[in-house]
Write a protein that binds this DNA or RNA. Structure first.
Lengths: 218, 218
DNA sequence: TAGATTGTTAATCGATTAACAATC
DNA sequence: TAGATTGTTAATCGATTAACAATC
């Protein structure tokens, strides 16, 4: 059993998973600039990580570099893309067609990467029936029936907080294995369901904490 | 020098800052339910942390509990609010009035907490002059002049990635000490400027990573 | 070949947890 | 008082970094 396999068995640490998309983004800009080669030292310099950390992160997944040379940008980009699951498409369903939901539905970058919003639901009769981005907005009462007929990878919740848990429960009951939550609520899901929270307020509070922390020190 | 002071000198660890807003949210729901008392064990149970971690986190800021009793919900809520900087208001300026920018501007919860969007800027002539939420959308050419006259705590960037660094530079040059970035770009700021990234794509990629990781194991 | 840089091991650092004296 | 639970210390765990043999 290799050291990589042993590492992998314990699951990939959160820190590593957090950094992978950062590597992906920077490698993409390098490729777009026409840079073909990069070392862990250069990556670290640009992203404010140590070179050792970058090599250690990548070593969870394989050996993508070459001694004395570094990494081929295109090749590493390809590997990181694959590791992040960008070699397939994802069926997504959005619930909540308010400002935020609409923003998400119209964001072209998701679709380009293979994340396809296939249906949008809302409870507001004024919105139901309207086209937005890809699809006609349906009444949320149809959500359960829709999910039974259309296998869905990711459920997006962009509703007010008071209904988000009940929407989440519908997703889980209908076999959706991952939830992307934008509502300002801590949602409860079974252990085998993956959940990613985009808590805008939490982010803003971290900002205001650091702002005041600094001012107190000055 | 107390142990708390020694801890504080090194700056509050990221993990602690990440958990404070989570405590705040849960304490708020407890208060709204009329619960007046809570122990670290109960908090941990509800939020999936150990009781020791919660006590340790809080101890960075003071002693808010009572042996044999636990914490008074209202009192602790008050302390955590203050720690996070919710006892003052913040002047914010938003650049980018696309779907996402509009969503942010219309989100009432920010204003309620004291985070006030005072001005909105965009480059699109069709948007300039329109009212949205609080204010008339101004042309981004006026941003620098506006900032010179109106002290601003937080700059919000909800522009496409190709212009976000230049907007960020304007904010920094005009003395804005913290940036809330929604553009899909890693922005560079001086060391004394605080930046919080809301990278939607990164979050989605973490989700798809975990989704595939699990499927490979099954 | 000589220089550069990888992947990995061992050392270090920091964060989490268990344990417990203090005390309400 | 007896029971409960804090704040903190010491022990553990895990993540980061420094160092280096391997090798392109």
């Amino acid at each position: 059993m290799s050291s990589r396999e042993r590492k992998k068995d314990k699951g990939i640490p959160t820190g590593v998973v957090t950094r992978l998309p950062i590597y992906l983004r920077y490698l993409t800009t390098l490729r777009n600039k026409g840079v073909s080669r990069v070392s862990s030292a250069q990556l670290g310099e640009a992203l404010n990580f140590t070179a050792a950390q970058i090599r250690s992160d990548l070593s969870y997944f394989g050996s993508f570099g070459q001694q004395g040379y570094g990494y081929d940008v295109n090749e590493l980009l390809h590997h990181v893309s694959r590791i992040l699951g960008l070699d397939r498409t994802y069926a997504m369903v959005l619930v909540g067609a308010g400002n935020l939901g609409k923003a998400l539905a119209s964001y072209e970058n998701f679709r380009k990467r293979g994340f396809e919003i296939r249906a949008i639901f809302d409870i507001d009769e004024h919105l139901v029936g309207n086209y937005h981005a890809c699809c006609i907005i349906q009444h949320v009462d149809n959500l359960e029936n829709y999910l039974k007929e259309h296998p869905t990878d990711i459920g997006i919740i962009a509703t007010p907080g008071d209904v988000s848990q009940s929407i989440c429960d519908i997703f889980v009951r209908c076999g959706v294995r991952s939830i992307w939550n934008f509502s300002p609520v801590h949602l409860h899901v079974p252990e085998d369901v993956i959940i990613e929270h985009m808590h805008l307020t939490d982010s803003l509070l971290r900002l205001s904490f650091r702002l005041n922390e600094r001012e107190q020190r000055d």
